[in-house]
Design a protein around this nucleic acid. Structure first.
Lengths: 222, 222
DNA sequence: TCATCTTATTGCAGTAGATGAAATTTTGCG
DNA sequence: CGCAAAATTTCATCTACTGCAATAAGATGA
């Protein structure tokens, strides 16, 4: 049997109108990208409709026109596909600025800058992230994967913190700082959600920081 | 015995949730407790030795002398058994104090008090928590479950925040506050771990708060 | 002590996520 | 075209987890 309409998606071939085609990208890379996107779309659509547990990877794979085994060549788990998790690393320049003790020289604003650059890629894949956020509310299990993602980056973050200590010493524990990063990410994303997903997630970062400062300093005041 | 008319179905009557009085405990409850403990011990021991993925629930069950099916009568998942997760709620008096705007009237210290009471039960089951913490470092997947636990309590926390708003208004978002609770819990636990698990996890809470204040206020100073 | 009701354990069958390996197809390129 | 590299698929297998029906083990009351 194998009713795979694999042709269907690949049909438009290279009918690229205009020369807008990403020249540097081979056909192979192209298809890979397309498949991945198709799988994420299928996963998010099906889960939104039937719920996380009612959707099997076979359904998702069938919807995307690939075998179930191929699915796992693209994602480590079903949940990953639903979240459409992309592991885009931190930009070089931002990292360099941070470890050098910049850009402002004060830890909290510099963390903010770091988080902003972590949030930026989320703005690009706007729709997918929005769908992922919505699904995360309905399916708390997905929030767990979000944390696993965090855990993967944790080592990298700790490296950055250690590196920065050399040029601009500070006393705060690495653990607290990573949790602070997580707090900022989450707060900004939720604020973005509450704002109806308008604009950029990073836009809500300053407000998050302001709130944090508020809570902590109120402690000292009154 | 007083002739109580309405006791159609088995009345749990006392049902003392606190494990304080073993005398009042029937043999059934006893065995249940013992089995549960045996399963947790077996799970933690085996995982410590062979790693999380190399240990099957069959091994754990066999080690504890029960069937694999029974295992799932006690735990929702393998990971839960390894963590030995207990869902002890917040004490009444602490909750009341918090929603009334106390005990200090300032949000951050009051959050600290709340977290302290969340950490206290961890001190009782000292050994198991220690082993769970160690395993969490080796097996990041377990950290996810820790978050699921958090998620379960999140609704309760949000209720508390909302209730407190009535008597002692504040502007901070619920999301930021829950993340702050998570940050304090995690920071205190890690500090406790670094201290060689001496004393109480809650002992390290003040230091965590101090660090947080430090990071945020340094922003304002320089 | 026995009869009985309730509750816990178990065996069995089945679903579904995830992985490894070999076979097959697709793509890149000279 | 024809060959080599890479990706997809098929197939077998493991394991976590669940529902159901049968059975064993406390609890209870006379």
């Amino acid at each position: 049997m194998v009713p795979t309409p694999s042709r269907a998606t690949a049909a438009p071939a290279d009918a690229d109108p205009a020369a807008g085609s990403p020249a540097e990208e081979g056909l192979r890379e192209r298809k890979k990208r397309a498949r991945r996107a198709a799988l994420i779309d299928a996963a998010q659509m099906l889960v939104a409709e039937h719920g996380l547990d009612a959707v099997t990877v076979e359904m998702i794979s069938a919807e995307a026109g690939v075998s179930a085994r191929t699915f796992f060549n693209y994602f480590e788990s079903k949940d990953d596909a639903v979240l459409g998790a992309e592991d885009s690393g931190l930009p070089e320049d931002v990292v360099e600025a941070f470890v050098a003790g910049g850009p402002t020289g004060r830890l909290l604003p510099d963390l903010e800058a770091l988080v902003a650059s972590l949030l930026r890629p989320h703005a690009e894949a706007h729709d997918r992230v929005v769908r992922a956020m919505d699904l995360m509310q309905q399916e708390p299990r997905l929030l767990q994967r979000h944390v696993l993602w965090m855990d993967r980056h944790k080592n990298r973050l700790v490296e950055l913190f250690e590196a920065r200590r050399a040029s601009a010493p500070f006393s705060t524990d690495n653990e607290l700082l990573t949790m602070l990063v997580l707090l900022l990410i989450r707060t900004a994303l939720v604020a973005w959600e509450h704002a109806g997903y308008t604009g950029d997630p990073a836009d809500h970062l300053p407000a998050a920081v302001a709130q944090l400062v508020d809570v902590v300093t109120h402690d000292l005041d009154s």
